[in-house]
Design a protein around this nucleic acid. Sequence first.
DNA 1: AAACCAACCGAATGATCGGTCGGGTTTTTT
DNA 2: AAAAAACCCGACCGATCATTCGGTTGGTTT
Lengths: 192, 192
Amino acid sequence: MSKKNAILLTATHLFAHKGLNNTSMAELSKITGAAGGTIFHHFKNKEDLFLNVINNVKETVTSAFKTYFLEHRFDNGLKMVEGAIMYYLNLAETMEDRFLLLHRHDPYKLAETNSTCRQYLEEIYDCLLDVFERGIKIGKDDGSIQIISTRNTALIIFSMIDGIVRFNTYKLYSAGALYDDLMASCRKILTR
Amino acid sequence: MSKKNAILLTATHLFAHKGLNNTSMAELSKITGAAGGTIFHHFKNKEDLFLNVINNVKETVTSAFKTYFLEHRFDNGLKMVEGAIMYYLNLAETMEDRFLLLHRHDPYKLAETNSTCRQYLEEIYDCLLDVFERGIKIGKDDGSIQIISTRNTALIIFSMIDGIVRFNTYKLYSAGALYDDLMASCRKILTR
DNA sequence: AAACCAACCGAATGATCGGTCGGGTTTTTT
DNA sequence: AAAAAACCCGACCGATCATTCGGTTGGTTT
C-alpha cells in the first residue's frame, strides 16, 4: 500500500477513536512509518488531511448504501425501510471507524467554516435519508405503510436508529439487545 | 459571584461549545478575569475542573427532572411519557450548554479511565431513563400503554428523542418542525 | 498585633504541537 | 542514460499548552 493511503487509513482510525485534536501528526508519522515531512507532502496541512478523510468516509458509506439498494429487491416499502435499518446497523459495525467519526463534533465543527466539508456531510445524510424516504414513499403507494409526512417520518426513524448506534458506541447499552423491539417500534410508527 | 463559580460556569460554556481540548486555561483565565494561578488554586488540574463541570451538569439536569415530575401529575402513563419527552426537549433548549456537553465525546472519553466521571454519567442517564420507564410502567397498569418490554421501549424512545436533539444541535434539521410527528410516532410505539 | 489562611496574582517552564525546509532517493519521461 | 518529476526523509522552528511557584492581599483567629 502506498504511503499516502496508509496515512489516510491510519488517520481515519485515529481521528475516529481519539478525535482530531488528540491525534498528533507525530503519532501518525510513527504508526505509518512515514516521516513528518511526507505527510505534509501528500496533504498540505492537518485540515486538508481531515477533509480527505471525510471525503473517503463519504465515498465508502454512500457507495455501500447505494450498491446495497441497487442489488436488493424488497417485497414492499415497509420491508425496504426495515432493510435500511438492518443495513445501517450492520454498516455501523463493519465500518466502525467511519461511523464513530460521524458521531464526533470534529466534522460538524469544520463544516461551520469549510463549505467543502459541509457539502460532504450533506451528501452523506442526503444519501442515507433518501433511502428511508424512498422506502416510505414506496410503502405508501403499495399500502404497506400508512402515514402522512414522508420526510418527517424518515427523519424520525433515522434519528432513532442513529441514536441507538450512538448509545451503543458509548457502551451505555447494546444495540443488539434492542434489535427486535426496535424493529417492532418502527413497524408501529409506519403502520396503523 | 465568586471567582470559583465564574470559572466553573465559563468552563461549562467553553467545554460545551469548543470542546475540552480546544479550550485553553489561558482563555478561561482571560474571560473570567481570574489569573492562571487562581484556576489551579481552585481546581487541581484541567481534568479536575472538567470533572467538577460534569458534576454540576449532573446536579442541575437530574434535579430539574426530578423536581418536574414531583410537581406534576398526569392523567395516565402515556401522558407522563409524553410529558417526559416535552420536558426533555424543553430542557435541551433552556440548558443548551449542558446538553451540548453531554453530546460531546469528552465526558465519555474521560469516563473510560475515571470512575467518578463514569458514575456521574450513569446517574444522569439513570435519572432520565427512570422517568420514561416509570411512565411506561404506569401506562401498562392503567391501560394507556400496551407493550411488552418496559425497559427496552424506554431506551428506544429515549434514544429517539436524544437523536433528534443531536441533529437539532448540528442544525441538520429542526426539532421544532418534527414535534407533532415525533409525538404521534411515540404514541404509536406505545399503543396498539 | 501577631499569626494564620484561603484567595489571588502573573511571570516562568518544559513539553508538545503543526508546519517548514533542504537535501536525498526512486520512478517516470524523454 | 540523462533529465525531470514525484516521493520521501528528519532535523528544526515558533507558537501554544498545562502547570508551577514565589509572592501579595484582606479578613479571621489567637
